[in-house]
């Protein structure tokens, strides 16, 4: 079972995760079906910026984060932003959206100018997240764990980051055992997605380059 302390940590992270989302008016404009290539580019860029902003607000609420060295805070966010964004996007694509919304969203991404060799692994990742049928708690915790990865480039005080990440891994581990008693591998599967995210992150820089070229 989760201890009282672990339960509070989980609820606290879940609240922050639910609170900080991309503003609704922005997601609404994403669903308008008519758009030019330029409009699409601008909107996707604005979305990405907004996404980083809400991610930072979520991160600020992670217990202990603000006590870390300021440059380490930036190194953690810089190293993880792309992965956390892929995770949140995967959650959006996994949800049962109103009829047709998925198609409009996918259409926008496919017409963004990013080449297929980068788009395909991204949608494969979304699919692999969908197969796990993750709960909101798991999404919130996995995002926090991704952000608090001590092995990001330029992190100086690795030990302090480890101390923040570890209790979250323990909560996620126990949570998985409680909520997936028939799938003892669930926790391992979640951690496996983190490896996939690293690969996507690695290709992201190349993806941006190809986008700019187009």
């Amino acid at each position: 079972e989760l201890t009282q302390e672990q339960l509070s940590l989980l609820n606290y992270i879940l609240d922050a995760y639910n609170k900080y989302r991309i503003p609704l008016d922005m997601t609404k404009s994403l669903l308008q079906e008519q758009f030019s290539a330029d409009e699409n580019f601008i909107l996707l860029t604005e979305m990405a910026t907004s996404h980083v902003q809400v991610l930072v607000e979520f991160t600020k609420r992670l217990p202990g984060f603000q006590s870390l060295d300021h440059e380490d805070q930036i190194a953690l966010l810089k190293g993880s932003a792309v992965e956390a964004m892929f995770l949140r996007s995967a959650q959006i694509f996994t949800r049962k959206l109103p009829h047709g919304h998925n198609e409009v969203l996918e259409d926008r991404i496919r017409k963004s100018g990013i080449s297929d060799e980068y788009i395909t692994p991204m949608f494969n990742f979304y699919k692999s997240i969908g197969e796990l049928q993750m709960t909101q708690e798991e999404h919130a915790l996995l995002t926090a764990i991704t952000i608090l990865s001590p092995d990001r480039p330029f992190v100086k005080d690795v030990l302090s980051v480890e101390r923040l990440q570890e209790p979250m891994l323990e909560v996620l581990h126990t949570f998985c055992k409680l909520h997936h008693p028939h799938d003892p591998q669930h926790f391992a599967r979640l951690l496996g997605r983190l490896t996939e995210l690293r690969t996507l992150n690695h290709h992201h820089a190349e993806m941006l380059m190809s986008w700019r070229m187009n």
Binding site: Y20, T49, V52, E57, K60, I74, A81
Partner: peptide, 21 residues
């Protein structure tokens, strides 16, 4: 415009300010 800001700039600005304001 936001599109001219790099990831690190956005992170630094967001860390300094408060999104709620």
């Amino acid at each position: 415009p936001a599109s001219n800001l790099g990831l690190e700039d956005i992170i630094r600005k967001a860390l300094m300010g408060n999104f709620d304001d």
